[in-house]
Design a protein around this nucleic acid. Sequence first.
DNA 1: TATGAATGAGCTTTCATTCAT
DNA 2: CATGAATGAAAGCTCATTCAT
Lengths: 200, 200, 200, 200
Amino acid sequence: MNDKFFDLKKEKQDKMINAALKVFSLCDYRRASTDDVVREAGISKGLIFHYFTNKAGLYEFLYAYSIKYLAIELYQIVSINEHDYFELIRQTQQAHLRVMRQYPYLIAFLSKAEEETDPEVVPLIQAKRTERKKEYQKIFDRADMDGWKPGVDTEVARNIIHFTVRGIEDAYLKSGEFTPEELIERIDEYMNFLKPAMYQ
Amino acid sequence: MNDKFFDLKKEKQDKMINAALKVFSLCDYRRASTDDVVREAGISKGLIFHYFTNKAGLYEFLYAYSIKYLAIELYQIVSINEHDYFELIRQTQQAHLRVMRQYPYLIAFLSKAEEETDPEVVPLIQAKRTERKKEYQKIFDRADMDGWKPGVDTEVARNIIHFTVRGIEDAYLKSGEFTPEELIERIDEYMNFLKPAMYQ
Amino acid sequence: MNDKFFDLKKEKQDKMINAALKVFSLCDYRRASTDDVVREAGISKGLIFHYFTNKAGLYEFLYAYSIKYLAIELYQIVSINEHDYFELIRQTQQAHLRVMRQYPYLIAFLSKAEEETDPEVVPLIQAKRTERKKEYQKIFDRADMDGWKPGVDTEVARNIIHFTVRGIEDAYLKSGEFTPEELIERIDEYMNFLKPAMYQ
Amino acid sequence: MNDKFFDLKKEKQDKMINAALKVFSLCDYRRASTDDVVREAGISKGLIFHYFTNKAGLYEFLYAYSIKYLAIELYQIVSINEHDYFELIRQTQQAHLRVMRQYPYLIAFLSKAEEETDPEVVPLIQAKRTERKKEYQKIFDRADMDGWKPGVDTEVARNIIHFTVRGIEDAYLKSGEFTPEELIERIDEYMNFLKPAMYQ
DNA sequence: TATGAATGAGCTTTCATTCAT
DNA sequence: CATGAATGAAAGCTCATTCAT
């Protein structure tokens, strides 16, 4: 990408970023059209190629920008001293909520990007995908299992929690029927169901 | 579609079906190319249009065929007298396993098709999608909650179970690193974890 | 073409000829589809290629057959001793009428073929087109101008007559609203209008 | 269509219009290929679709443009005070002549378009076809029959005149052997032949 | 820097033609 | 002979990308 993008007014940068996040979160990479991005952002066709070389470059930039932005929020919101697993889930969701307030489509975009299989872009985001996963692992590695039932298979337990969170998020992203705040509330409800299965 | 397709040798029918299932399960509708289907099936370009009119027609046929085939297996494997929720999950997975032996990509295709949003095909499969959902509901409606902890929120519990099954399946479909049999085993393991949370 | 075509039962020959005449008289060469011919004739796809090599071959045969058939009728109906121009026109139309009774689309086909510009078939029928024109010239060369106004430009007069006949025929072929008999009557009416302009 | 077409330099617009008129006047709608138009106009494949959406859109535009352009010339050349039938014919032909100087294939295109039966485009031009016919009727309705022989069947007389004009035009459009000026002259000659048949 | 007209490779679809049965 | 399933070249159309202004 062309670093001069960052010399643009923050406002214009965000207009382009939000437009692209929206388009790429609603359609997969291939179907998303640069025309749509351009129309949504209210800029000219050439500009996107001026700053991002090509569609794949735009996608790559968006992915990198998104996980970086999310990482910052996670860093600020998720307490370094929190060791309770469910509380970490909660704080993670709070971070998502804040991200969505600035970039409404960022979380949806990342979720869609995880599924992306297009050989044109997978290589461009693969490394960052791993990085992102590690970021989350780092957070949840802080968790101790104090107070958990002995003999609970931690791996299995964690996966169930994450599958559940993802399931709820997916339903949210697809339906668009409820607000980010309701999403958080819903996740809470499910976590409260799962807690007794883990805790003594 | 052209019903003469069914006059072809079963072998050739399946070669075409398997090729199309594979291509459509790896790529979404728009990105999936008829060239790929044709190459994978080892047939000529025109043939697919001869039998299925157009790409959307092929997709529509595949979806209808898939849920019908799956329904037959479900009907045969899932016992009408089974009322235990986890056992029903188990039998459902057994049916999936059998389907995958004949059509390795069928389950993955259906999973992908659930996410499909392309306006060219959504109308063609929407009705069947609903039908399919009902089919599953009918199965799990048989379940009684005998022996479940009183006060368990059934809706939440069921969703957690399904999110977990889906999470495992997704990981399976994406990685391709393990066999259908291992998938079943894995699901069993997770279900065994969840059972104590539901049962008294 | 394959001369064995003529070994077929006359009935089957005519079924194929009539089907092809119909299709080629309704659509121009390129747009006319062999599938339509085959469906209309109730024969199999391969047969048409067996007897006529390809679509152009079928067209070439049809044209040659049509002008030959028409020539025979002209020869029988148009009197060798008739020297009155308008009477020759009349007899020519009578011949057309008889042709249409056996092959309803033959005249329309020839009319359409005159307009055909497709480089794939024009070379195949060009010679016969000229031949056909000569055939008509031969008929009208018999006409003497006895009784015509002196000083009438014969060339111009003849052309006006022919443009008029063609104009009426075209309207007939396009509308399909009146019968071949009415066509003849209509032409008579116009010829009666023109006669005083030519005759003393 | 995309109205930005009209923002192009007049020269380029006309290059595209003339190319398309030529291709569509030589071949009917179906057989005319966008590749030919593009080659003839010296532009790229995509451009034609950028401005006219699709082949049918190009055809529709061409027809509308052609009759509008012709109507303007007719309005300017054909005198509102002229009531002599043959003089109106003459002036109409003068208008055609002027049109052909700017767009050599426009008259031929309209002539071909009158015959077009392709269901893909007929609905797009039908209304304009009727409009065009009315335009001509309006012109010839001005004609009085002053000085015509009493008892002349006006309908028949007019049709003969028009069949003759059309016959000469057709020959002109097909042969390409003579100039528009010669066409006018030829029509004059034929009209002079017909006048005595109508006038006292 | 910003624009948007222009490009052309790539994909879907059609249909004359072939060929195994 | 007759069939019709199978072929593949050709045509319409899309859209990422370029480039003159």
